[in-house]
Nucleic acid binder design. Structure first.
Lengths: 338, 338
DNA sequence: TGTGTCAATTGTAGCGCTACAATTACGCTG
DNA sequence: CAGCGTAATTGTAGCGCTACAATTGACACA
């Protein structure tokens, strides 16, 4: 305790800085948190002392005392998926700019989401960002009870717990469906993920089917790949759907990964895209612009979703009352694949 | 404060649960943190009371009192890059399994890293995971002074601050260089990033050059792309290096993204791979197995790096003295592109 | 019956900070 | 020069939890 010679000095705290600068601890606190209310010279003296001692404020104690953590938790189903990676990047950028930190939890099932939420809530984050709007009932109860500001992302429709940032998934898929129809394709397949699991994929399917029915085309050429399918999903979809309908002339994929897989498969089979077969994707991943021919796809704004979500939370944390829903829109990007 | 009718009940704390269960607060704490030392019936009574009241332990207070946060901070230069995304996934999985949480900071420059470290240290994480071994001197001083366990990832050689998980970057590039040489290529180019910035790319270059010199080949066909180059990097590298050496017959790229870009460019120009031109990558991203022909590449173990790094930190946090360096190895994956 | 041993439980004393109220300093008015 | 408003600074009283030592009770043994 006494830091005599040879004694290892324990961690520097606010009162050490206060003594060093000849002020009260409160002034040190103010010098860091509300610099405008302390006299410039005093502030300078305090900051110098802090630097000299190598003082790092203990945010944990600060959080306990103030009830504000300047930390935002985000739950995403995956980080390898390019869309969510962009969202996390957006969150991270925006939060860093505003002096907040990101507590990240990756949870790919509702059950894991529940667990993650439970432990995250113990940290008293200033806000929580979720993906989608399908949550475990216990999750919802916990969140409601905690009163923490909430943003659900990648979704706009349906019941929202608090705030939401996303775009109209249904509309986006419908736009692509209409585009395919307008280009003259008549036997259009759909490659997605098992529908039970992910309503955000289901909405794409619905929008797509609506566009086909509108045009009087059959809307039952559906293929569902495994979670882990990757590029193979597109290949499999082509094989299965062409067996089901030999005249199949186009494929709409719920992710660009499937779509690129389908393009590669066309290449292997000697099908010329788009003359013999058309492929459309969803996501506008980096690769979409690079494959030959370029992939026609729906550009989503994952990065902006992240930024906007972070912004909503911070605004709320600082006492504002932001708009509860933000639509970041989408865009159909036309390249050579249809 | 009095929670009479209509009064909004403030947050439940440990003493509320204690009163409800008829025990002391310490027993509640023990029931959660060291269940084996409390009588089974007592424990049951406490947990029931906690559930009934919807008690969520305040981890912030716990951290302040115990000095342990059960939180690990990770700094990565990017999250969109597939390699780091895998590492973050590995971290997240391993930490979740062990009941720890992940504080993520994305910092793409040494200066931002410094800022991030500074604010991260305020949270008193039980460990910090860094990427690479090039850090701002202030960062190093801060980290040293804090005494927090540290893991540097994606690197093994050179000065290590505390612990490290990675593989021999030089060796990996050299292996690929040798493979190209053994296949008979004689004018082999290199596509990388600006060398000043990233020593982890520089090591690849050195290993590659060593392999070429070993074989008596020229080792100065080097191209450096911008940070943001993406697939275009490969295209540019081909253009520039072929202008410099028309007999160029192979290209080694520091990332699969460049390599795939180069493959696409070959396709556009009608070059048959690998007959007319060979391409090798680095990373074994998902796409490497899917392009036609498949990309020969170095498979790195980003996911395992994340898991191992998390494991080291946790072991250390729980009082162990783990090995300071872990080599997760690499693998040369031979496909059709060379 | 006294006493040592062990497991289970409990009080006490902070962890390092900030909200808030109280105090002091200081210039300005009448 | 008293009286007052404003700005700067400071004390007090926790925030909710856990380390640690102290206490209690049950039981075995001499």
């Amino acid at each position: 305790m006494t830091h005599g010679p040879g004694q290892t000095r324990r961690t520097i705290r606010m009162s050490d800085v206060a003594r060093e600068a000849g002020v009260s601890p409160m002034s040190v606190s103010n010098a860091f948190k509300r610099p405008e209310i302390v006299q410039p010279e005093t502030r300078e003296r305090i900051l110098t002392a802090a630097r000299r001692l190598g003082y790092v404020p203990n945010g944990v104690a600060g959080t306990l005392a103030s009830g504000r953590s300047r930390m935002v938790a985000a739950l995403v189903p995956s980080i390898r998926n390019s869309s969510f990676a962009r969202t996390v990047q957006g969150l991270s950028d925006q939060l860093a700019e505003q002096g907040y930190q990101l507590l990240l939890a990756v949870a790919d099932t509702a059950e894991r989401e529940r667990q993650a939420i439970e432990s995250v809530l113990g940290r008293r984050p200033d806000g929580i960002i979720l993906t989608g709007n399908e949550h475990h009932p216990d999750t919802i109860r916990l969140l409601r009870q905690s009163g923490v500001p909430l943003v659900e992302t990648w979704i706009l429709s349906g019941p929202i717990l608090d705030m939401a940032v996303g775009f109209d998934l249904n509309e986006a898929a419908q736009a692509m469906g209409r585009l395919l129809v307008s280009r003259g394709y008549r036997h259009i397949g759909f490659a997605g993920y098992a529908p039970a699991e992910r309503s955000r994929f289901l909405e794409r399917q619905r929008g797509f089917q609506a566009a086909l029915r509108e045009a009087g085309l059959r809307d039952d050429l559906l293929f569902y790949a495994e979670e882990t399918a990757g590029f193979a999903g597109g290949r499999l979809a082509m094989a299965v759907l062409r067996a089901q309908e030999p005249r199949l002339d186009a494929l709409f994929c719920v992710t660009d990964i499937f779509a690129v897989g389908a393009l590669f498969e066309c290449q292997r089979q000697g099908l010329v895209v788009p003359r013999d077969f058309a492929v459309a994707g969803y996501g506008d991943f980096e690769i979409a612009a690079e494959v030959v021919p370029g992939l026609t796809t729906v550009r989503t704004r994952g990065y902006e979703i992240g930024r906007a979500a972070a912004h909503l939370i911070v605004e709320r944390a600082e006492g504002g009352i932001p708009a509860p829903r933000i639509d970041v829109g989408f865009e159909v990007i036309i390249r050579g694949s249809i």
